[in-house]
Design a binder for these strands. Structure first.
Lengths: 219, 219
DNA sequence: ACGATCGCTTTACATTGTCAAGAGGCAGGA
DNA sequence: TCCTGCCTCTTGACAATGTAAAGCGATCGT
C-alpha cells in the first residue's frame, strides 16, 4: 500500500474532479482544512505532516493513514482545489454569458487570479508543487481539464468574430499571463512595482488593468 | 550568530549584487554547486541541508557554518542567481542594441525565460521561494533592481516612439507574462498544450510565438 | 612566539516522515 | 448471539533531518 489510498479515491469518482471531497470521513476533512490553513501562511511545501495532524487534533500518523504519504496529502489538496477552481470558473462563465466577447475573456482571466488569491494553498498545491505530483498522470489530466473551460471560451469568442488570430496562441497568452500574475501576487512579489499598492493582496484593479490591456490588444 | 554569515557577505560587497561569489572559499562554492545540481532535479525546496553537504563531500554541518541555516543557503543561491541574471540580461541588451525597438523587447523577455530554463535552481531560489527570503529586504531590493533593466528598456523604446500607452502597464505585462511562461516551462506544466512539443524543455519557438504576439499587440 | 581568526568536523538533540502493529467500533452474516 | 471483517485512528519505533555548541588544525597578523 504505497499510495493506493488516494489513487483509489482519484479513480472512483464519477467525474475526474470529485476526487477530494468524495467520501469524506470527518478526520480526513479536518486534515485538509488544517493543511489549507497552515499552507496559506507558510506555503504548501513548508508545512509538516505532524504539524497538520496536531493542528487538526489528531495523532501524528493520521495523515499517512488517509493519504498514504505527505505527498499524497498535498495531491489530495490539489484535487480538492481543482474541483473548486472548476466550480468557480463555471459560475463565472454563466454569470458573464451575455457580456461582449472580450469582456468575457477579461472576466475569466481575472477570475483565475482571484481564485489563486482566495485559495492560495490550493493554487500552490495544484500548479506549484509538481514534485509532489510526479508520476501521477491523473493530476496532469485534471489540471489540463480545468483549463479546457478557458480554451473553449476563447474558441467561442473567436468563432463569434470578436477576436482573430491563432486561437491556441491566444489561449497560451491568457494562460501564461494569468499564471504569472497569480504566482507573483500570491508570493507578494508584485508589491515593489509602481502602481501596485501595498496591502495583504494585490488589488483587483491592478490585475484588471494588466489583463484588460492584454485582451484589448488582441487582434 | 543566527544569520550573520550571509548577512555580512550581503552587505560587504561593493554592489548589492556580488554577494554570493564575492569571497568564495572552496567549500562554500562547492556547496552552492551541489545545491544547484540537486535543486535542478528536485526543486529547491526539496533538497536537504545534509544532502547538499554529502554531495559536496563535506561534513553535514558545513552548510550551516557558511550560510547560517538552510534558508540562508537558499538565499545565497538566490543572490548568486541575481548576479547571473543581471549579467546575462546586460550582455543580451548590448547585443541587441541596434535592433528595432519592439525586437529588443521580444529579445529581452525571451532572454528572461531562457535564463529560467538554463538555471532553474537559481530561478526557483530567486522568485519562487519567498518563504526562505522572508524578512530579508536586501533580497527584495536586489530582485527589483534586476528588473530595472527591463523597465529602462521599456521606457527607452517608449521614448523612441516605437510603442505608446502607459509605460508601467506595459512593463507589468511583460514581467508577468515572462514570469508565467518561465514558471510553467520550468515545472514542465506547458507540455500538455497543443502546439507545445514534448521534450526536456519547452522549445524557444513556442516561447517566442507567445512573447512576439504579445509585443506585436502593444499599442 | 603567540593569540586570533578561518575552515571545517564531531557530537548531541529535538523534530520530522514513514512503517508495522495494533485498539476500538460498527456492519453484516452465520 | 457471536463471529468476522472493515473502517478510523493510535501507539511505538526507526532512520533521517535541521540546528546548536564545542573543538581541532592551519594560517596570519603582530
Amino acid at each position: 500500500m504505497t499510495e493506493t489510498a488516494n489513487a483509489a479515491v482519484a479513480t472512483t469518482g464519477t467525474s475526474v474532479m470529485d476526487a477530494a471531497q468524495g467520501t469524506g470521513s470527518p478526520g480526513r476533512a479536518a486534515l485538509l482544512r488544517a493543511l489549507e490553513e497552515l499552507a496559506r501562511e507558510q506555503g504548501v511545501s513548508n508545512v509538516g505532516l505532524r504539524e497538520v495532524a496536531r493542528h487538526a487534533g489528531l495523532s501524528h500518523a493520521a495523515p499517512t493513514h488517509f493519504f498514504g504519504s505527505r505527498d499524497g496529502m498535498i495531491r489530495a489538496l490539489a484535487f480538492e482545489g481543482l474541483q473548486l477552481l472548476d466550480d468557480e470558473l463555471c459560475v463565472a462563465q454563466e454569470r458573464d454569458a451575455q457580456l461582449p466577447g472580450r469582456e468575457r475573456l477579461v472576466s475569466d482571466a481575472m477570475e483565475f487570479v482571484a481564485f489563486a488569491q482566495r485559495h492560495p494553498a490550493h493554487f500552490d498545491a495544484i500548479f506549484r508543487t509538481p514534485s509532489a505530483a510526479a508520476g501521477d498522470d491523473s493530476l496532469d489530466r485534471a489540471r489540463r481539464a480545468a483549463l479546457d473551460g478557458l480554451r473553449a471560451l476563447v474558441m467561442e469568442v473567436h468563432a463569434a468574430g470578436d477576436i482573430s488570430g491563432d486561437v491556441e496562441t491566444v489561449f497560451l497568452q491568457l494562460c501564461t499571463l494569468s499564471h504569472g500574475i497569480a504566482s507573483l501576487a500570491v508570493d507578494g512579489l508584485l508589491k515593489g512595482f509602481d502602481k501596485v499598492p501595498e496591502g495583504p493582496n494585490v488589488s483587483a484593479e491592478v490585475v484588471e488593468r494588466i489583463i484588460r490591456a492584454q485582451v484589448a490588444q488582441l487582434p
